[in-house]
Write a protein that binds this DNA or RNA. Structure first.
Ligand SMILES: [Mn+2]
Ligand SMILES: [Mn+2]
Length: 314
DNA sequence: GGCTAAC
DNA sequence: GTTAGCCAACGCGGA
DNA sequence: TCCGCG
């Protein structure tokens, strides 16, 4: 998306001495091209997060995040950051989290648009979130299956996998929504009531992924190793672990064209021909409609559902 | 992008 | 004054 | 136990 100054079809951009101001945050080097070729600039990214920030907050809530930062653009050095560290803007809230090794790490989460915009000023492009919210870190609130197609496969096969997974989930009593990730994959997500442990969630997701793979070993695999994935779709269930993250809805991706991870209705998905179908210019319109991610209510990963899965495993 | 430690 | 380094990390599963 | 992986 080209950024003719002042024509962003995004949130309002004001001016001050240091640069442009979005959501009260000064964006330095607003015209720096972060995406050489497609002409997407830093102010485009910051304005995007100003625009979708409320929706992100509605959909994801206050969830610890890892940031993918590319201060010099996507062709420069990019790095992940999950700890707060010095000099990180106060618009992002800090929370102490005990890590597996027993140490305490200071993590970050956004409480509103300013958080996302402030991170964008720091060169953040992508936001990856935990499967739990900050106020109850030991009770995950979603289950995600990350469908990763081998590069020989097309989007049609990935879509079919998403629909098949959706059916299996419905069959055991769970409703899911879909999100195209902006890369090649699709996330199939089940919002959860916060009743179960990480252990229960992980084992459920693992069992279900292996059930899919056992039923159709030519199409699916539930193991990560590269050479078992040839020509297949890897059903990545490992996102359902304490500390693991998945790309957040409405995060921009640090890939050519600045695609955006976008929740879609199952009906919409039928007619899509790419997981990178959405970009900065699509968001204003999408925000006018109900969010597909919010249309699915949190469900209980309880005995009924677990028993039904066990029964199908045999 | 911004902080810190080292020249 | 300038610069180079830092900025995630953990469990899976194959070998 | 080590390594590649996300
Ligand atoms: Mn993926
Ligand atoms: Mn994956």
């Amino acid at each position: 998306m080209k950024s003719e100054k002042g024509t962003h079809q995004t949130s309002s951009v004001a001016k001050n001495d240091g640069g442009d101001v979005v959501e009260g945050i000064t964006i330095t080097h607003p015209d720096r091209e972060l995406y050489p070729g497609s002409g997407v600039t830093k102010i485009d990214i910051a304005s995007h997060y100003g625009l979708v920030g409320d929706r992100m907050t509605e959909v994801s809530g206050e969830r610890p995040v890892s940031l993918l930062r590319c201060p010099a653009g996507i062709e420069g050095e990019c790095f992940f950051q999950k700890h707060a560290g010095k000099g990180f803007p106060g618009e992002l809230t800090r929370i102490d989290i005990e890590e597996k090794n027993g140490e305490i790490g200071e993590y970050l989460y956004a409480t509103g648009p300013e958080g996302y915009v402030a991170a964008a000023q720091m060169g953040t492009i992508e936001f990856h979130g935990w499967a739990a919210r900050a106020d109850r870190l030991e009770r995950p609130d979603r289950m995600v299956f990350d469908l990763d197609p081998d590069e020989t496969l097309g989007f049609a096969e990935t879509k079919q996998a998403a629909f098949d997974l959706k059916s299996l989930l419905l069959d055991i009593g769970l409703e899911a929504y879909a999100m195209v990730t902006g890369g090649k994959g699709i996330h199939v997500v089940v919002p959860l009531r916060r009743t179960v442990s990480w252990e229960t969630l992980k084992s459920f997701a693992k069992t279900l992924a292996h059930l899919m793979a056992d039923r159709e070993p030519d199409r699916f695999t539930a193991t990560m190793s590269k050479d078992k994935r040839k020509g297949k779709i890897f059903i990545d269930w490992l996102r359902n672990e304490r500390g693991a993250t998945a790309i957040l809805p409405y995060s921009v991706r640090a890939r050519p064209g600045a695609p955006i991870a976008t929740p879609v209705t199952w009906d919409e998905l039928k007619n899509l021909n790419s997981a990178a179908a959405f970009g900065l210019g699509h968001m204003a319109d999408r925000l006018k409609h109900d969010d597909p991610a919010l249309a699915v209510k949190p469900q209980t990963l309880g005995r009924t559902v677990i028993d039904r899965l066990e029964k199908r495993v045999g």
